[in-house]
């Protein structure tokens, strides 16, 4: 695939590149559709319910119906909203979420851009989404929105720091920011990074939950206080875009966790190597997605100020300790 992507850009190859991006988009949309379905099922099962069962066989078409409903809804822009910004905000939120997927390798051969700074690119570009939330919150001219937007901005900025810091340990051990190199390093070591980097892994999981603003860190759209946070005034397909961005990040974050800490496409034991790498990737990836849903079905929500305290006073110092210890061990061993 690398060679395929390295072809000179012409009309023909350009078209093929665009088509392959569309294929990825299709895969991601399919994932989002069934992630939402599966989430509702899992949460339902936990709560002694069955989840959606009535739309299509086993309720499989529920999300399709929901999205269709959103697309058919009237496009409402509040009278006092800042119109251009209001229209632009869902796009600002969504585009980076899709753009970050370009660097994710799914196996050694199935990948798009093989970027030297893949990990950094992911973190950097994903930060732009916050801007979308904030713009949307500001443009909507609604008090719940603005509080939600401010919380979103504060949360994203605070948690991006421990998120990156927790990855530094892995980067030190690998000596590269390239995601394929990181997985290959894990193959070389014979163990996945969540064992030597257990502290970093813990911090990363917590910080990534906050970045995704999922339970227990879903204060951005804390339903019981802020109605729907920055999305309060949005409806129809603009709302769908925000939701889409959220779930595409679930895709992205679960992939990154799998690649960096859970060995990507590597089999857990050597003798299981005959099973193709993509299967392992999907298994680990699905486990991560299930983990997010499991937490959602169990935990209450943290308070905004406690969230900040956790980020700045606990996670950041811990991640610095992690970097220090990793560097020390790397020098000594």
């Amino acid at each position: 695939m690398s060679q395929f992507l390295a072809q000179p850009l012409g009309w023909g190859t350009g078209l093929i590149f665009a088509l392959s991006a569309v294929v990825l988009l299709g895969v991601v949309l399919g994932f989002v559709t069934y992630a939402i379905y599966f989430e509702r099922k899992v949460v339902g099962w936990v709560q002694f319910r069955h989840g959606p069962t009535r739309t299509g066989p086993l309720g499989l078409l529920q999300t399709v119906a929901d999205v269709l409903k959103l697309l058919l809804k009237e496009d409402i822009i509040p009278a006092l909203a800042d119109k251009p910004l209001f229209v632009l905000a869902p796009l600002i939120a969504f585009v980076p979420s899709f753009a970050v997927l370009a660097t994710l390798p799914f196996t050694e051969s199935i990948h798009f851009a093989d970027l030297g700074i893949g990990l950094l690119y992911y973190i950097a570009v994903s930060g732009i989404t916050t801007l979308g939330s904030l713009c949307g919150a500001w443009a909507a001219n609604n008090k719940y929105s603005i509080i939600g937007g401010m919380r979103a901005a504060a949360q994203m900025i605070s948690y991006e720091i421990p998120l990156i810091m927790s990855l530094v340990g892995v980067i030190l051990m690998t000596g590269s920011l390239n995601l394929i190199d990181i997985v290959n390093k894990q193959a070389e070591m014979g163990m996945w990074f969540f064992i030597p980097q257990i502290l970093g892994f813990g911090i990363f999981i917590i910080a990534s939950l906050a970045e995704l603003s999922r339970t227990p860190f879903d204060i951005v759209e804390a339903e019981s206080e802020l109605v729907a946070g920055h999305m309060t005034e949005y409806s129809g397909f603009r709302y769908a875009f925000f939701m889409l961005a959220e779930y595409v990040y679930v895709f992205g974050m679960a992939s990154i966790t799998t690649l960096v800490f859970l060995g990507g496409w590597l089999p857990p034991f050597e003798f299981l190597g005959f099973i193709p790498g993509i299967v392992w990737f999907i298994l680990k990836f699905s486990f991560m997605v299930f983990f997010y849903m499991w937490l959602r079905a169990t935990f209450p929500r943290m308070r905004a100020d406690q969230l900040m305290q956790l980020g700045w006073k606990v996670l950041l110092p811990l991640s610095l300790v992690n970097i220090f210890v990793t560097a020390l061990l790397k020098e000594l061993l």
Binding site: F48, R49, H50, W294, L295, A297, F299
Partner: peptide
């Protein structure tokens, strides 16, 4: 937190009441 997670894991496969 772990106790809560173990409870929800149990009910995940438990009997449904709907």
């Amino acid at each position: 937190l772990a106790k809560g997670l173990s409870y929800t894991l149990k009910t995940l496969v438990g009997k449904k009441v709907t």
